[in-house]
Design a protein around this nucleic acid. Structure first.
Length: 490
RNA sequence: GGUGCCAUGGCCAAGUGGUAAGGCAAUGGUCUGCAAAACCAUGUAUCCCCGGUUCAAAUCCGGGUGGCACCUCCA
């Protein structure tokens, strides 16, 4: 059975109980990328967020049909292709490949369907034709425009009033400045498709309306995207779909906040201040990004700074270490008995572990409060470590820590964190951080070996000298009971 | 000009009626040959300001100040 949850609806500006069109099913459409460049970390926020939400809701019993499109026919693509002397469709195909590589590197599940504009021309033409037939669109010299005046509810999603908009540039052939293109007449050197109104290509907004209809039907349960798409993109989609289908378009509009720079300025390609996903992933494990995004309320703007990823990595590291501590524990006695005999820390851990799912679900069901969910996990981690300090914990603690380990597994399944083993995690961190700093692992290993020799000879001065030398390189050496380990300082 | 969002300790940040999660950083302690990790302790938080509603407000209402976003491509 699908479990109910609350979700904030941009359309009503309220937190609502989610009500599906069809019991247990969610038709979800997320606006994907216009593929003319690599994904940047702003795109990554949306990608990771929707991936996490879908995973979570599936875990909660929802049957989700998740559609995310690729916009592969667009002004920007054509523009970039011309700059590079590349065929526009070849360029977009190339960046779809890059997108998929980035998505895979971030550990995202592939949506159920990933329609492309170039494959959806029939759907698009059908929708435009329908809008003309119904009197909501008009053609002029090979282009087709949506007649905003024909739709009285225009602006209901974004709260905009047509009269109050800053008048956009007057384009020849439009009846009103607010009208927008459904079909653009072909221009020399641009890709085009045949249509009843002459060769051309789709306008910016129609493709999503058409692809959503083709893949999910007239009405979707949830339509999502970045906050910057509310107007005009989503507003125009609503107009097209409602007028074309004579049906509601999206019951819930879900918009995530944007990344901003520390300066407060928005991150955007037009500002030239983007950081590509590939660059971030060269330096940090992919889950670092995921944790960073999940740690923040998805609707809030997120200021990006140099400390963002290192901090998230420090948190992630705590989680992995705590789980490692928990996994090392053994024992066969009933948990309650062990906890009782080992005292308050054990009882506390048992209690936190057992109540975790309830608290985790409560947070997530409240408009995906991933920040609170993760806070619960951090709290649990501290309880594990504290318990782990007890003398007999390793030998007898297994049953007490078992619920906590289940909690970690729950988090892994639902929001995709902690998917590596600890060994994989540490190796990933080392490899990436070392590469980022331009240090060779072999040189470090050699120094650590030398230090081991010095220590064996109780030459503490020499050992400390090497430690300091390594520390200057951001390498931490740890003398553990079962040998020497080293980590890259975060 | 229009529309919308936001303002919580040094920093990031959750919390929408019952007196404040979590993380990062900092300081002291335990542990350690020295460290690291971990744990413990430490932050008197005017929850931007003023007024109102209420037994009770960070949380609701009104006003103010400051910041941001969209209205042009942008996730």
């Amino acid at each position: 059975m699908a479990v109910p949850f609350k979700i904030y609806n941009t359309r009503t500006r309220k937190l609502e109980d989610f009500e599906p069109i069809e019991a247990g099913k969610i038709r979800l459409y997320a606006c994907g990328n216009t593929v003319y460049d690599h994904c940047h970390i702003g795109h990554a926020r949306g990608m990771i967020l929707f991936d996490s939400f879908v995973r979570y809701l599936r875990h909660r019993g929802w049957d989700i049909d998740f559609v995310r499109n690729f916009t592969d026919v667009d002004d920007k693509i054509i523009c970039r292709a011309n700059e590079l002397g590349e065929d526009p469709l070849a360029l977009s195909a190339r960046f779809i490949g890059e997108y998929r590589a980035d998505a895979a590197a971030m550990g995202l599940d592939t949506p159920n369907k990933e329609p492309k504009v170039s494959d959806s021309m029939e759907d698009i033409l059908g929708m435009i034709g329908s809008l003309i037939d119904k009197g909501h669109a008009y053609q002029n010299e090979g282009s087709v425009w949506f007649d905003v005046g024909s739709y009285s509810d225009y602006g209901s999603l974004s709260g905009q009033k047509v009269d109050e908009l800053r008048s956009a540039d007057e384009v020849a052939g439009k009846r009103s400045p607010a009208d927008f293109a459904l079909w653009k007449a072909v221009k020399p050197g641009e890709p085009s498709w045949p249509s009843p109104w002459g060769d051309g290509r789709p306008g910016w907004h129609i493709e999503c309306s058409a692809m959503a209809k083709a893949t999910l039907g007239d009405t979707v349960d949830i339509h999502g995207g970045g906050l910057d798409l509310v107007f005009p993109h989503h507003e125009n989609e609503v107009a097209q779909s409602v007028c074309g289908n004579k049906a509601d378009y999206a019951r819930v509009w879900m918009h995530h906040g944007l990344l901003t720079m520390a300066s407060g300025q928005k991150m955007g390609k037009s500002f030239g201040n983007v950081i590509n996903v590939k660059v971030a992933l060269e330096q940090f494990p992919a889950e670092t990004l995921r944790l960073y995004y999940l740690q923040n309320q998805y609707r809030s703007p997120l200021p990006w700074g140099d400390e963002a990823l290192p901090e998230a990595l420090a948190m992630l590291s705590r989680l992995y270490e705590a789980r490692e501590v928990a996994e090392a524990m053994g024992g066969e006695e009933p948990a309650a008995n062990v906890a009782k005999s080992m005292g308050a820390d054990a009882l506390k851990l048992l209690e936190l572990g057992e109540s975790f799912p309830e608290r985790f679900y409560a947070a997530m069901d409240q408009d995906f409060n991933t920040a609170l969910a993760i806070a619960h996990l951090m709290e649990l981690s501290r309880a594990i470590n504290r318990f782990g300090n007890l003398k007999k914990a390793n030998k007898r603690g297994g049953p007490v820590v078992a619920p906590a380990l289940k909690a970690f597994a729950l988090v892994t399944e639902t929001i995709g964190l902690m998917r590596m083993t600890s060994a994989e995690f540490h190796a990933d961190v080392k490899g990436k951080r070392l590469a980022a700093m331009g240090i060779e692992a072999a040189k470090i290993e050699k120094l650590i070996e030398d230090r081991g020799t010095a220590r064996a000879e109780k030459n503490w001065a020499r050992a400390d000298e090497i430690r300091e030398d390594l520390e200057a390189k951001s390498i931490l050496v740890m003398d553990l009971a079962d040998g020497v380990q080293w980590r890259v300082k975060l």
